[in-house]
Design a protein around this nucleic acid. Structure first.
Length: 422
DNA sequence: TCTGGGGTCCTAGGACCC
DNA sequence: TCTGGGGTCCTAGGACCC
């Protein structure tokens, strides 16, 4: 049996662990730049704050109801996520970390196993050890486990656990689940299915396979089989190496000057380098892009992007910055209010399987680069991000993210932990 | 005034190989 | 009247996930 364990309102719950007085109160967490509400406590949802609602459009609701607002703190959430995952490992043969707040568990099975009490124990342990509330769905396929999880969240009150271990239970879960809420059915397919009078997951599970194949391909066929309890999607215990790595940001303020863009681009190249080295891969080409703000309809709109192939794959920050700045040169247009930029790394190869070029000196250069970044990474892990960096990344950072409501990194930065007077 | 940031998979069609 | 059989690679577009 598969279990899907999902943290409740994860980012909000992370903030509440360290401020328990916020329990029972409306809490929201905003996206980067304090733009949109991307996590809402139950109380905030009840006030009508929608997922993705722009902060400036819900200001009234926030002020009237004293909603507690946080900027997103991914360092904190990432660390809490890691701790929750550690608890799961005690309870499962294999686990797949599916996202920052969700994991699939392939459960142990004993003769006479009681999945309901087992899942309840996992839930209680995560709550007691980490302080994180989770809900758990258990079933014979991943798609059904996702469905059971949604049912557990809405229909079981404070129990928070549901096991599909009979046809009656499968039917009641699928009848409860709207077709658009099925894992793998997005807005486009939902619209089409509803147009053909398939409105819930039960009806979808009973639909004709060939008809589904024509419109939705093999993905759709797999999905229907999964709803019928036939497992077609395996657990992915080890995450496959990434095919694309992207670092992009909107700016806290609009940028027009090339020099400022260059600093931002260099900073993104630095982040990409860190990500590549962590995955032990190199990239053979990058795409650099700079965008104006589509919401400012009176501004001249511009989407510039260019892809630059390399002679030799690299994950050395110095290389990435110099290629990225060449890219910027090619696409920069003056007189535009730039709002967002980014770098995408493509065509990955493993770090230890690089095809060398014909010219031997690049080998020597790359050894030097590798040693430099090793030291750089070590210092920055120990002393804090960006303590030592390339000058191209600049110092002013006018464009940096707006995050006015940032909480401390309670679990990863000792010096930020506030003193509590009892 | 103010609107996020990452990813993946599948398919069809064109171009090419022997 | 009749025109083989078996492949790969690449790209763009469309769908999806958190």
């Amino acid at each position: 049996m598969f279990a899907l364990s999902d943290c409740n309102n994860f980012y909000c719950s992370c903030e509440r662990i360290f401020q328990p007085s916020l329990n029972g109160k409306p809490v929201i967490v905003l996206s980067n730049n304090d733009g949109c509400a991307i996590a809402r406590s139950e109380e905030a949802k009840a006030l009508g704050i929608a997922m993705g609602a722009p902060a400036f459009m819900i200001r009234d609701i926030i002020e009237k109801n004293n909603v507690q607002v946080f900027s997103s703190n991914y360092v904190l959430y990432g660390d809490i996520s890691r701790r929750v995952t550690e608890v799961y490992r005690k309870y499962a043969k294999e686990i797949e970390v599916y996202s920052i707040d969700e994991s699939f568990l392939y459960l142990f099975d004993y003769p006479g196993m009681n999945y309901d009490s087992y899942a309840t124990e996992i839930r209680n342990t995560v709550k007691q050890w980490i302080g994180m509330p989770v809900c758990i769905g258990v079933a014979s396929s991943k798609t059904l486990a996702k469905a059971a999880n949604k049912y557990a969240k809405k229909m079981t009150g404070s129990k928070g656990v549901f096991v599909i271990d009979s046809e009656e239970k499968r039917k009641s879960v699928l009848e409860f689940l709207k077709v658009g809420d099925v894992w793998g059915i997005g807005s486009r397919y939902a619209k089409w299915l509803i147009g053909h009078n398939i409105t819930d997951a039960w009806q979808l599970s009973r639909s004709n396979e060939e008809w589904i194949r024509q419109k939705m391909g093999v993905v759709g066929v797999r999905l229907v089989k999964e709803l019928n309890g036939i497992s077609c999607i395996d657990l992915e215990e080890v995450a496959p190496t990434k095919k694309v790595i992207c670092t992009s940001r909107s700016f806290g303020t609009l940028i027009t000057q090339k020099q400022e863009l260059a600093e931002a681009i260099s900073t993104f190249a630095t982040r990409c380098g860190e990500k590549l080295r962590k995955e032990k891969i190199c990239t053979s080409a990058i795409t650099v892009f700079i965008y104006s703000n589509v919401f400012r309809v009176k501004d001249t709109q511009y989407h510039g992007s260019v892809t630059i192939p390399f002679n030799r794959p690299t994950n050395y920050t110095g290389d990435l910055i110099s290629y990225a700045l060449k890219g910027l040169n090619a696409i920069y247009k003056p007189g535009i209010n730039y709002h967002k930029a980014g770098i995408m790394c493509l065509d990955m190869v493993p770090e230890n399987a690089i095809q060398e070029t014909f010219f031997a000196e690049t080998q020597r250069d790359s050894d030097k680069g590798r040693k430099v970044t090793q030291v750089l990474d070590q210092i920055n892990v120990l002393m804090g991000s960006d303590k030592v960096r390339f000058a191209a990344a600049g110092y002013s950072k006018q464009w940096r993210l707006k995050n006015e409501k940032l909480s401390p990194c309670y679990t990863t930065n000792i010096s930020q932990i506030p003193v509590v007077h009892l």
